[in-house]
Simulated assay, not measured.
Amino acid sequence: MILLGACAGWSLITAAAHDGRPEGMLLAVLAVAAGHAVGRVSGALLPVAAPCAGAAAGLALAVVLPGLSAGPRYAAPLGHAGGTAALLALATGAACCAAWATPVPGLRLLLRALAAGIVLTGAVLGSVAGCVASAAVLLCSLAAGSVSRRGGCLLGLAVAAALVAGTAWALAADVLPDGLARVLDGRLTAQRVALWQDGLRLAGRNRGLGVGPGRFGELGGTAPHTLSADGRPHSALLQLAAEQGLVGLLLFVAAFCWVLHALWRSPRSTPVALTAGAALTALAGCATVSNALSFTTVTVGAGLLAGWATARPWARDSADPRL
């Protein structure tokens, strides 16, 4: 929570320095903090029912909210697929956490069927990223049952997130091999990559305090001319680097590392901790290449899942080795 407070405080400092608009950052921090608090309480009281209800709610929101849908109504070049993918990954993680938390075999099978249904929902919605992300979370959760020590796996998740972030940064800096760069450029669209390059350029010129929260659309070379950009570079890392400087970026990375550390120390069973870690790593990947964290439903869901996976249930799970 100290790190979240630091993120909020730094956004206010950079906003004051450059006449920025920190409301979006403050809302995201508040959503994560509130979700985490509710998750800790509900996870302690209802370790199975709470994440199960969260999974169902996440699935319903991904289906019924048009603002998150990747369907024809939002078929702009950048779309809203990042929010859909993130929400589906979190919902899958919640369903799998509930499955590992229940001692009833039949209910566990039913919850895993729910998780598989969420994966299929991603395909039905036309969200390839959502289908892939939720499938990865489901597979990681199934594999977590055979893991005895969680430390190495959580470290692997951190490395995976770092690889995604490094690849996005390298693509924006145009330092990848030509063949790989062309493939990624085709998958991510040239428009998105151009926005990332704008973000990297602004970050390089304003490493200390950035240009101020909410000001990327005013100063970026591509975003003002792109209706679908919404004044954002569609990458949480590059947006923070451009708008809040290196300190804001480091605080964001530290918050993710803190979540993984909390999962390592969690009193919940290793499969629950690793499942939540996989889902939150999938969210980090989505946030690196999209505007997933711009949706309040996603930030609340991230806080809830972290809270459920680190809560200390009254009927405590069996203790597991952490290393």
Rank of each mutant, 00 (worst) to 15 (best):
Q191R: 08
R150E: 09
D174E: 15
P267C: 02
V119Q: 03
S42Y: 11
V298A: 00
V29F: 06
A89G: 09
A95G: 05
A91F: 03
A241M: 11
V211S: 00
A203E: 13
V183L: 15
H18Y: 00
R149T: 14
S290N: 07
L87E: 05
S127W: 14
R265P: 06
L155C: 12
G301R: 07
S141V: 01
A309Y: 12
A75H: 15
A306H: 13
P103F: 08
G156V: 14
T121H: 00
C286M: 15
L88Y: 05
D198Y: 02
A28H: 01
A133D: 10
C7V: 14
G58L: 08
T275C: 04
A172L: 01
A203N: 07
A55Q: 10
L114N: 02
V48Y: 15
A242P: 09
V253Q: 05
D19A: 09
G248P: 01
A292I: 04
G307D: 11
G9L: 07
L3R: 02
A262C: 08
F252S: 06
V159W: 07
I118C: 03
L180E: 04
G156D: 10
A161Y: 03
D317Q: 12
G307A: 12
D174V: 12
L114P: 04
Y74F: 14
P66M: 11
R215T: 01
T299L: 01
A81W: 00
V119T: 07
S11G: 08
M25N: 02
R268G: 05
F256G: 13
V272F: 13
P267D: 15
A60F: 12
S42G: 12
V104T: 12
A161R: 07
P177I: 04
A190W: 14
R232K: 11
A99Y: 08
A315K: 02
L154K: 11
A60N: 04
L163E: 08
S69E: 06
F295Q: 02
L155H: 02
S235R: 00
G93E: 01
A172K: 09
D174C: 03
A98P: 09
C153L: 14
L59D: 07
A302R: 06
A302C: 11
P177R: 05
N291M: 05
E218Q: 02
L68H: 01
G122D: 07
G130Y: 04
L109Q: 14
W264S: 04
L195W: 07
